[in-house]
Structure formats: structure tokens, C-alpha cells
């Protein structure tokens, strides 16, 4: 049991690392706003699948890592990710039984919430996002959710993460 658990941890860490890589990989400038929010997608998946293992604390630490990675104010992503992790863990029993497209709608709301929190923090320090393109990525993330979900579920089953 403990063996399986340890193996699972490394898989979770690897998926987060991969999401972090994707979230800073350079894109052409017209694509920048279309970049999905990879890290929250992965975070939400693990919160849904293993709410006892991945929850607010993990959200907070991953958020801190993202802040350092992107050179932002330390804690803005940590706050946003902790909040969405909290909401997801609260609602995981409902969201789990939804069909995929309905799950995608909840993901849209969650990621928009995350972006709203980030926009507030930026607004307070005087760097409020000035274009509507800022919100596009939450739609893109929601559209991508079914694939992310299926992929991560397969990974979870293959490596028996529990």
C-alpha cells in the first residue's frame, strides 16, 4: 500500500511539472492569450480524483511555484489556486458525477474565478489586465477539459495512483 502511494506521488508531481513546463513555454505573441491554464486544470483534476491527497495545501504550494516561475507578486497564484482547490474539494462529489460537457462548464466557472482573483490582485497593485482577451484562456481551458480529464484518468489508472 505504502509502495503504491509513493509511486502515485511521483506521478502527481510529474503531471504538475509538465503543466508548469507548458505554462511557460514560449508561444507566438498572438497566441499568448489563448494559452490554457494548464496548472489549474491539472490541480482541479487531482482535487476531483483524490480530494484527500490533493487539496488546498497542494494548491497553495503549486501557486507559490507558479509565482516564482513567472516572476509575479509572491502569493497571487497561491491564493487563487488555494481557493479553487477548496471549491473543487467541496464540490467534488457533485462534479464527479456530471457528464463531461457539464464538468467542462464547472471548470469554466472555476478557472474564471481563479482569473478573477488574479485580476483583483493585479488591480490592487495597479497592473489590471486591460483587454478582454485576458478571459479567453478560461474558455479555452474549459474546452480542453474533456481531453485533459481523459488523459489524466488514463494516467491515474495506468500507474494506479490512489
Amino acid at each position: 500500500m505504502s509502495e503504491a502511494k509513493r509511486q502515485g506521488t511521483s506521478v502527481i508531481i510529474l503531471t504538475f511539472l509538465f503543466a508548469l513546463l507548458l505554462s511557460v513555454i514560449p508561444l507566438p505573441s498572438w497566441l499568448v492569450f489563448v494559452r490554457p491554464e494548464w496548472v489549474p486544470l491539472v490541480l482541479i483534476y487531482w482535487c476531483l480524483a483524490l480530494p484527500t491527497r490533493v487539496n488546498v495545501g497542494v494548491g497553495w504550494s503549486v501557486g507559490l511555484v507558479v509565482d516564482v516561475l513567472e516572476g509575479n507578486l509572491l502569493g497571487q497564484h497561491a491564493l487563487a489556486y488555494a481557493v479553487i482547490a477548496f471549491v473543487t474539494v467541496k464540490l467534488h462529489k457533485q462534479i464527479r458525477v456530471y457528464p463531461l460537457w457539464q464538468q467542462a462548464l464547472s471548470i469554466l466557472v472555476l478557472i474564471a474565478l481563479c482569473q478573477l482573483l488574479l485580476a483583483w490582485v493585479r488591480g490592487i497593485i495597479g497592473q489590471a489586465p486591460d483587454s478582454w482577451a485576458y478571459w479567453v484562456s478560461s474558455f479555452i481551458s474549459a474546452i480542453l477539459w474533456p481531453w485533459v480529464f481523459l488523459l489524466l484518468r488514463d494516467i491515474r489508472r495506468k500507474f494506479r495512483v490512489s
Binding site: L17, L21, V24, V65, V68, L69, L73, L74, G75, V121
Partner: peptide, 28 residues
């Protein structure tokens, strides 16, 4: 967040974490 924004108390933490993050930067 306020501590980072106004006082820079957390610079040490940030710099320690950046070293941990460096492999990600490197791989990208």
C-alpha cells in the same frame, strides 16, 4: 502578498524557490 509588494521580506524565499524552479526554466 502585501509583504512581498511593500517590504521585500520574502526575497530570500523567492530566491531559494527560484533555484528549485531552475530545472523547469532550463527544460523549457
Amino acid at each position: 502578498m502585501t509583504m512581498d509588494h511593500r517590504h521585500h521580506y520574502l526575497d530570500g524565499l523567492r530566491s531559494a524557490m527560484s533555484i528549485l524552479i531552475y530545472p523547469v526554466h532550463y527544460f523549457v
